[in-house]
Design a protein around this nucleic acid. Structure first.
Length: 566
RNA sequence: CGGGGCGUAGCUCAGCCUGGUAGAGCGCACGGUUCGGGACCGUGAGGUCGGAGGUUCAAAUCCUCUCGCCCCGACCA
């Protein structure tokens, strides 16, 4: 491709609202253009990168026995009403009406449509399992789109769905998909982690996320290199905390603690370690108020708590609710004497003796509190938020926290959608049963953005070869020097003729401009044709990543390039 | 949805407080010099200052409404 005939315009400055490197660089290098909040056009070079990823995704999914199809972006409300998600999905679902006032939505995901298709065609266990996928534009009306393609409202996603007659079959496909995803991200030369994840609103029994590691990632993950444990912090467990040494129970006592409503204040005031204070929080949920107790030096994992009580939403209660539940203003709550409310205590407080907690009475705490004698929670559970340095539950030592960009998420759905929508098959005994399902998502644009987050420097993008819009940038340094131009033209023709993806910078620009643009656009291999090296019959070859330059005799250039590209 | 901020040339922004001829840099066009890391000089084009209403002799500037966008939070495959 000749640059002068291509559509590639770079800018020196990025828009003020572009904050993260991938967003800034995609804008500056002319890959994308914003149309509205969270909605982008993919310009030619951006589309080339996305297309390369899509080709890799297709290749690996096809290898795994997945079959491609394409479903509509616009979906009728009826299907969503059948699954129950028309009511539940909330404002993220973009709802639209046609001229007859019939309701539709722009699909944020396709469980309903695929389930509708399969229930019509598949009737027997003999036809199962089936895995289908598509790559398609989705729309989710995110509250706050940001970071360019990392969190758009309209975005490209590969979504796959599998249907099974047994849990074992789902397990096998799930593992196959997990392997396919690993092949995909490896093929993109990305550094990534597979982590256990919360199943969130999609539901189901098991779930893994694929995280491209990057400081700018929106998700926090914990890992232990020694034992291989890896999980999203929303889901992560730690080995049980070491409890302070048990003591002989002493008498329960009320002590006034005026103005001491935070755990550190109370601990300091009473001269006890924060580990011996039980932090007691009141939450409001759709299932009513819930009280959660956790060790004073730790935080509650609200996702775990929400899952435990099967809540659709959960938030820290306001003062009014706290007073209603505990009889005191916030800051003086405790598990002693609470009635008519579910109290979930974390395992971290189970071994405590003679601990301190709020007295459910203004400006007062209790000391010498002991489980069993003074208070008993409704549930003992793990609702602890892990933190840096906690020990891995698999025994490999301390957990390390890092950040990642969630580029893929796979779920075992079970029969949630098939049961709701009557997607049944007949088994070998003649029974009608709902199919067991899995679903598997992979963000196309987000993965390309993540690749840039992980591969850039101060001057621009440093594409991994598999996702680069072109493999080779051929820069002719002076378009008025006929020898330079003739040489560059000939190299361009020869390389193109051998199916090398070459972008030929034939613009009438000064060398400095071409070098800056080359660095910004980030094509992995650069050939520089200039009068100096040409006088020796050589062309400069350099790699974007390490900028290592070497002079190559003109006659060897094409062979060398082909050798490097494999 | 709560809090904060911004809409002025293609892009990045100044001007607004204190009303009085609409600005800079980059980019673009033309001419000249230059040509291995975003060159220099000269000339030029380009904006009903997001929109509507109001105050005023006079509004980019003050007021009201409205639309769009962004940031923090909550939320979130």
């Amino acid at each position: 491709m000749r640059w002068t005939q291509y559509y590639l315009f770079t800018t020196r400055e990025a828009p003020a609202d572009a904050e993260v490197p991938s967003h800034r660089l995609m804008m500056r290098s002319g890959m994308i253009k914003k149309v509205a909040a969270g909605i982008y056009s993919y310009l030619p070079s951006g589309w080339r990168s996305l297309s390369k990823l899509m080709a890799i995704v297709r290749r690996e999914l096809d290898r795994s026995g997945c079959v491609e199809l394409s479903m509509p972006a616009i979906q009728p409300a009826e299907l969503w009403q059948e699954s129950g998600r028309w009511q539940r999905y909330g404002k993220e679902l973009l709802r639209i009406s046609d001229r007859h006032e019939r309701q539709f939505c722009f699909g944020p995901t396709h469980e309903e449509v695929i389930t509708d298709i399969v229930r019509r065609d598949v009737k027997s266990y003999r036809q199962l399992p089936i895995s289908l996928y598509q790559i398609q534009t989705k729309f989710r009306d995110e509250i706050r789109p940001r970071f360019g393609l990392m969190r758009g409202r309209e975005f490209l996603m590969k979504d796959a769905y599998s249907f099974h007659s047994s849990a074992e079959s789902l397990d096998a496909t799930y593992e196959e998909m997990k392997a396919a995803y690993q092949r995909i991200f490896r093929a993109c030369h990305l550094d990534f982690a597979v982590v256990e994840a919360d199943t969130g609103t999609i539901g189901g029994s098991s779930s893994h996320e694929f995280m491209v590691t990057a400081e700018t990632g929106e998700s926090e993950i914990v890992r232990n290199a020694a034992d291989g444990y890896a999980a999203n912090t929303e889901k992560a467990n730690a080995a049980p905390l070491v409890a302070p040494a048990a003591e002989e129970p002493v008498a329960l006592a009320e002590v006034p603690t005026p103005g001491k409503s935070s755990v550190p204040d109370v601990a300091a005031f009473l001269a006890v370690p924060t580990q011996k204070v039980v932090k007691t929080l009141v939450y409001e949920t759709d299932k009513g108020p819930i009280v959660a107790a956790v060790r004073g030096d730790r935080e509650v994992n609200e996702v775990k708590l929400g899952n435990l009580v099967d809540a659709e939403w959960l938030q820290l209660a306001g003062e009014e609710t706290v007073v209603k539940v505990t009889g005191s203003p916030p800051g003086f709550a405790g598990p002693v004497g609470l009635k008519g409310v579910r109290v979930v205590a974390d395992e971290s407080v189970r071994g405590l003796t003679n601990f301190v907690c709020g007295a459910n009475k203004g400006e007062t705490h209790l000391t010498g509190v002991n489980w069993g004698r003074d208070a008993s929670p409704t549930d003992w559970a793990d609702i602890l938020l892990v933190r840096d340095g906690d020990l891995s539950p698999l025994g490999g030592g301390p957990l390390e926290m890092s950040r990642g960009i969630e580029v893929g998420h796979i779920f075992k759905l079970g029969t949630k959608y098939s049961a709701a929508m009557g997607c049944n098959y007949t088994d070998d005994a003649g029974n009608d049963l709902p199919m067991i399902m899995g679903c598997y998502g992979l963000g196309i644009g987000r993965t390309v953005a993540a690749a840039i987050e992980q591969n850039h420097d101060a001057d621009g993008i440093v594409w991994p070869m598999p996702l680069a819009p072109f493999q080779v940038l051929l820069a002719a340094l002076n378009m008025e020097d006929s020898t330079v131009v003739e040489t560059a033209e000939r190299l361009y023709q020869e390389l193109s003729g051998q199916n090398v993806e070459v972008l030929y910078d034939d613009r009438n620009e000064r060398p400095g401009v071409k070098f800056k643009d080359a660095d910004l656009v980030g094509i992995p291999l650069r050939l520089t044709v200039g009068a100096k090296s040409l006088a020796e019959g050589k062309v400069e070859m350099s790699f974007r990543r390490d900028r290592e330059k070497q002079l190559v005799p003109l006659s060897d250039v094409v062979a060398r390039v082909r050798g490097l590209l494999g």
